[in-house]
Deep mutational scan, measured.
Amino acid sequence: RADKQHVLDMLFSAFEKHQYYNLKDLVDITKQPVVYLKEILKEIGVQNVKGIHKNTWELKPEYR
């Protein structure tokens, strides 16, 4: 399990490339446990629960 700041850096870097990611792809990118990753994502992102981007994560507007 990596340092939180290191995980945040990896996530922000990923979100610079694409606006939406599913959790599986973010786990592959960060190599972090799902529960730990979700904890961090809830602080900086929102999970889309409907629409064409259903079940994906994106950054909260203040982090874009």
Results as ranks from 00 to 15, higher is better:
G51D: 11
Y20L: 06
N48I: 10
K60G: 03
F15A: 01
V7Q: 02
Y21D: 01
K60A: 08
V34H: 08
I52A: 15
D28Y: 08
L26Y: 01
V35G: 15
N22V: 10
I52M: 12
Y36E: 12
E58P: 02
Y20E: 09
G45A: 14
I52L: 14
K50P: 04
T30K: 00
P61N: 11
L59E: 01
L41P: 00
K50S: 13
S13L: 15
I52P: 13
Y63P: 04
G51Y: 01
V35I: 13
D25M: 04
T56W: 06
M10D: 05
K24V: 08
K24M: 09
K4F: 02
K60S: 07
I40Q: 03
L8C: 10
T56A: 14
F12C: 06
K54W: 04
E58Q: 09
L23P: 01
D25W: 01
D3H: 09
T30Y: 02
K42Y: 07
V49K: 13
H53N: 14
V7M: 08
L26F: 02
V7T: 11
P33Y: 00
Y21R: 14
W57I: 14
K38E: 12
G51I: 02
L11H: 01
D9L: 07
V27D: 00
K4I: 05
N48H: 15
Q5C: 13
S13N: 11
L8P: 00
T56R: 11
T30I: 03
Q5H: 04
H53V: 07
K24E: 12
V46T: 13
K60M: 04
K38F: 06
A2F: 07
K38P: 00
E43Y: 01
L8M: 12
F15Q: 01
K42A: 11
K60P: 01
Q5T: 10
N48Y: 07
E62P: 06
E16G: 10
K50Q: 14
F12E: 07
E43L: 04
A2Y: 06
Y20F: 06
L8D: 00
I29V: 09
L8I: 14
K24H: 09
W57H: 02
V35T: 14
K50C: 11
P33D: 14
L23Q: 05
V34N: 07
I44S: 00
L23N: 00
F12Q: 09
G45R: 03
K42N: 10
R64F: 04
D25A: 10
E16I: 02
Q19M: 09
K42C: 08
N48E: 10
K17C: 05
L8Q: 14
E39Q: 11
D9R: 13
R1C: 09
L59A: 03
P33K: 07
V49D: 12
E43S: 05
H18Q: 12
K17E: 10
N55C: 08
V49P: 12
L23T: 07
I29Y: 11
Q32K: 09
I44K: 01
H18D: 07
Y21H: 06
K38D: 06
G51E: 02
L26E: 00
L37I: 12
K38N: 15
E43I: 03
P61F: 04
P33L: 01
D28M: 08
Y21W: 12
V46A: 09
Q32G: 02
K50V: 13
N55V: 04
V34E: 13
